[in-house]
Simulated scan of single mutants.
Amino acid sequence: MKALAPGTVIFHRHRGYGVITSVNLLTGWIAARFGSEARTLDLNLSMDEVQFADGEAILFRRAPPDRMPHARLMAMVRELHRAGYQRLYLYSWPKPSGLHWRWHLFTGQRDWMQRPWREGWYGSGADYNVNPVMGWGDTPAATTEELVHALARFDPQGLARALGRDEDHAAWFEGVCAALLPGYMYSLDMQRPADAPLQEMPPVPVIAVRASLPPYSGPALAWPPGWSGLWSKVHAMPAPAINLSGVPEIR
């Protein structure tokens, strides 16, 4: 799709050719002049039939957008698993407010609690609402295949660490995607009952990615392989880096 900015020549079916004077892509409204230098007309890109000057349609949220990116991420991870990148994992959990969900992709060793952080491989639904991209050079309307290629260009070394077999996790993830996509996502968040210890295996939370969808009513989901007992064992913090320079570190 072409860039949409002030100065772009457009065509409106009722008013003919005009020029955009301002754009608000957060709301989908533009202002444009049609034959008068003194008067502008406000147009809604979701409602008014506006085209580029060459006839290409300007499409903006013609369908309700996903309010969180997790389903798109799940589809991408599934395709990478099928291509042999089975050591790629998607962790998702709610922010403390409960209004948005975070997500984190990680590769290599499958350790859900002490997973490595790699810049650009994590994000928040709160940020996605304002700027609906994952953050590795993708576009808001990128397809699953385009997301894969954008991630490979952004961090080929990081993606190479996901190449390998993890058949039990890949089988679990394939089943979860078959049950949930395209309208629902999973959250790896173990809720603690009031005044009670954590349950060992409560149902996996499922959340709709669009407000218009009803609550999930499909089969209960199993937790990922290797999840059992994570909350009862001791989690050791990573050891500090060894200083070989001879210069004392200031902490």
Rank of each mutant, 00 (worst) to 15 (best):
I10H: 06
G16A: 02
Y17K: 02
T21S: 00
S22V: 01
W29P: 15
A32Q: 10
D42W: 15
D42L: 14
M47C: 09
E49A: 15
V50L: 08
V50H: 03
Q51A: 04
G55V: 05
I58H: 00
F60N: 03
D66Y: 15
A71H: 14
R72Y: 09
V77R: 08
V77W: 05
V77A: 14
H81R: 09
G84S: 05
G84V: 14
Q86Y: 09
L88E: 03
H104G: 00
L105Y: 03
R115P: 12
R118I: 10
E119D: 09
G123K: 06
S124P: 09
S124A: 02
A126R: 06
G137F: 00
G137Y: 00
P140A: 11
L147S: 13
V148C: 11
V148T: 09
R153P: 04
R153L: 09
F154P: 05
D155V: 10
R165Q: 02
A170R: 07
A171D: 13
A178P: 02
M185T: 14
M185D: 13
Q191S: 07
E200C: 01
M201W: 08
V209Y: 15
A211H: 11
A211I: 13
S212Y: 03
S212N: 04
S212F: 04
L221K: 05
P224R: 08
P225D: 12
G226T: 07
G229Q: 02
K233M: 14
M237F: 08
M237P: 12
P238D: 01
P238N: 01
A241C: 02
A241G: 02
I242G: 01
I242S: 06
L244R: 05
S245G: 10
G246M: 03
I250Q: 15
